[in-house]
Design a protein around this nucleic acid. Structure first.
Lengths: 249, 249
DNA sequence: CGCAGTATTGAAATTTCTCAAGCCGAGTGG
DNA sequence: CCACTCGGCTTGAGAAATTTCAATACTGCG
């Protein structure tokens, strides 16, 4: 809980300058945490939630469903992310959010957030910015699914997930959790599961990255980033994070 | 100019309740308008803009570029849209915005927007909401490109563009401007130009919709929406917004 | 009136998906 | 503790969808 909040604060603070009082007010929200089972939906398309979720641990997935039952994952979220702040101002959910693996979340009531935002513009800006970074991630997803080859697409996906995990301090020794089946990755990247499999193998063969047992390991960052044409600008991370990324190369 | 502002106000007012004073403050911004030639870039990936653009007339396109030169259009914007408010809080552009056809835009300096937002939370909420609707449009684009068949994809694109044009009062007699070449539509939908052509013809043959000379005509809305699995919820237009305004109070 | 960009057409080539079957590895119950 | 089972990964075709290529019509604009 503490960790997730610290991450959220760090993320939020990147643009707006948060005063100590702002931070204190945020920490004061202190929502209850609750566990979510793998596969369980947290909010569903059509719902009108009155809380906003913070991820404390595990991975959440945002998806839309077609009439055929096909599922399109839009984005994935880890510790410190707030995947559904948009519900503050868009009352009806146009997508669902589920737990990918066992996760722990906290839910902050809108009723507490609105007054906080009104009384402390810096906090509002911070949350606003979080939603804007999400939007930037969606834009990249459009480009990834729409314009890149299968191999580049998977490589880009790996780069993004790793970079975000690393930014959250969740990467250890060039590897991070990625508890997705190849089928789910396919549903995120607009590829058949078999095509994901072939791409995973290609990346493994060239020793760029490996995915095994829900763990993503980066073997050759520069090579992977080159295949992916990965430019982390869109994640709008802290300067330090980008610098450390450089050093990693 | 007046029209665009009215549309923007209407859009913005859908969630937050804008007082007369809020509206007046917005109108006071009164930015200068300027024409943009077809194809001309308004902001480019990597720029750090200090203004936010309002579309007065014509169509703008948001896109990203790959190293190969391939272009992926992410979204299109018409009168009353503000395609780059996100630059208020994400300083470096992760995409470009260009004019599709000859267009007219106004640019509001960030310096004027920030104080306005700080002093009038309702105005801030309104702009925030506009960025959230954009994000919802990006989410649909991911699903469209990632999960739908070519035919459904084009049909969905038509439904969205028409619905948005109609909402802006720009649709006449079941038709609206859509000044895109089939090639550009392909760059938006992740399809080769030829595939777009075949899909366009299929929709025409079934008398669902026609696209000719930059005009989209809806011939059979229900049929088209059925093919597209189009559900306008994600656009968060007036009807839904009215309800959410209630709940918000 | 003619140019240039766009739309359309048909066919070949390639990519991508579907299908089917075997394999592996983690978790379960005897 | 081991056999079993289930889901996920892997493999190799063949089938289908999609793109590339090339060549012809169309249309708006100068």
């Amino acid at each position: 809980m503490e960790l997730a909040f610290e991450l959220l604060l760090a993320k939020a603070a990147q643009h707006a300058t948060l005063l100590a009082a702002d931070r204190a007010a945020l920490l004061d929200l202190m929502p209850r945490s609750r566990p979510v089972a793998a596969g369980e939906d947290i909010v569903r398309q059509g719902d009108r939630p009155d809380t906003a979720v913070i991820v404390l641990s595990g991975m959440l997935g945002r998806y839309q469903t077609l009439e055929t039952g096909d599922r399109q994952y839009i984005s994935f979220h880890i510790t410190g992310d707030m995947p559904d702040i948009q519900s503050l101002f868009l009352s009806t959910m146009d997508h669902s959010v589920c737990a990918i693996n066992g996760a722990e979340i906290a839910a902050v009531p809108h009723k507490q957030l609105i007054p906080l935002i009104v009384s402390r513009p810096a906090v509002g800006f911070a949350f606003w910015r979080v939603t804007l970074v999400d939007a930037a991630i969606f834009r990249q997803a459009v480009t990834n699914v729409g314009a890149r080859s299968h191999l580049a697409r998977l490589a880009h996906f790996f780069c993004e997930q790793y970079t975000r995990a690393d930014d959250a301090g969740l990467a250890v020794e060039k590897s991070c959790d990625l508890p997705l089946s190849q089928g789910q990755i396919g549903q995120a990247l607009g590829m058949a599961a078999i095509s994901v499999n072939r791409a995973v193998q290609a990346l493994r063969k060239d020793d760029l990255a490996t995915l095994r047992a829900g763990k993503l390991e980066i073997r050759d960052w520069r090579g992977l980033a080159r295949v992916a044409e990965f430019d982390p600008t869109y994640l709008h991370l802290t300067k330090e994070a980008e610098l450390s990324k450089m050093a990693f190369k």
